[in-house]
Amino acid sequence: MKKYFKILIIIIVFILCFIFLNKLVSPKYQTNLIEGHMIKEYYKEEKNHEVIFIGDCEVYANFSPLIMYKNYGITSYVRGTSQQLIWQSYGILKETLKYEIPKVVVLNVNALRYNEPVSEAYNHLTLDKMKWSQEKIEMINNSMLEEESIFDYIFPIVRYHSRFSSLTSEDFKNLFTDNNVTYNGYLMNKNIKPVTNLPTKKILGSYTFKDNVISYLDKIRQLCENNHIKLVLIKAPSVYPYWYSEYNDQVIEYANTYNLDYYNLLEKAQEIGIDYNHDTYDGGLHLNLYGAEKLSTYFGDILKNNYNLTDYRLDNHISNIYNQKLSVYNKNKGDE
């Protein structure tokens, strides 16, 4: 009996050490590659959002939910991740609906151009900190590149063992705790880098969205329909990578076929008031804080006027939460 107890203790200690080492080598995404932390922050939120944004960096860099709350009382959250592919958007939406049913889902259509997984690094930024679920497993299986293995995701030590030699104080400090890097999924950036030169607009072998991509767009649409959610398609006003007119035409056709609203905000940049000499932090790929606030005010107005949303500024409980968030937001913005 004593012998079995000893073995049991050894096994437990081994498992605990293994869990600890996996946790230790996992990137913490607190000061470096902070985009990897965004997916996790949603879980801590009170789930009361009437609008959920899904998509790639064109949502998390360009839409500020707190500005939409401040100006219109809209409660929203951006569930965007770096280079979020359409099957990942589907998985994230499915997961979101386990927690809450929003009135509106806003999907950025930029990712429709990608039919295949693009980058192992981006896969990890989207998936590492996502809670384990059927959706996560499906997303991993659909996203892995040839050289990847699911064990890279299950046991971080497999993927990140080389980090043992480059652990930083962050890895110990944030072993069991972490801080938010976003404001309801919006990643603030105050830098200014004007649009100057862009690469040549290349001729493509095909401009047609592939069947696999459209099948996931269909799944997102059906998921929204089944839950009585209004699906709204948008193209954020990022000037690069080029949004070809052929892409745009297909989205318009899709939206017309299924009676969806589609807003190409790139075409509305002037009306929104975006100044590409001032309102972008990286030469036009993403808007900075100033551009994001203009866009959020413009799009918030569209949401407010068309989708029967509640003004939560009149709700004591919600307004307390959002006012606290706004206070931190304004402080970091430099307004206070």
């Binding site: 470096n32 590659l33 985009e35 770096s82 690094a121 690069y240 030469g283 790929l285 993403h286």
Partner: peptide, 12 residues
């Protein structure tokens, strides 16, 4: 003749 920079969206 012309130079442009295209940063990745997450420090890649």
């Amino acid at each position: 003749v012309r130079y442009a920079e295209v940063p990745s969206c997450a420090g890649q």
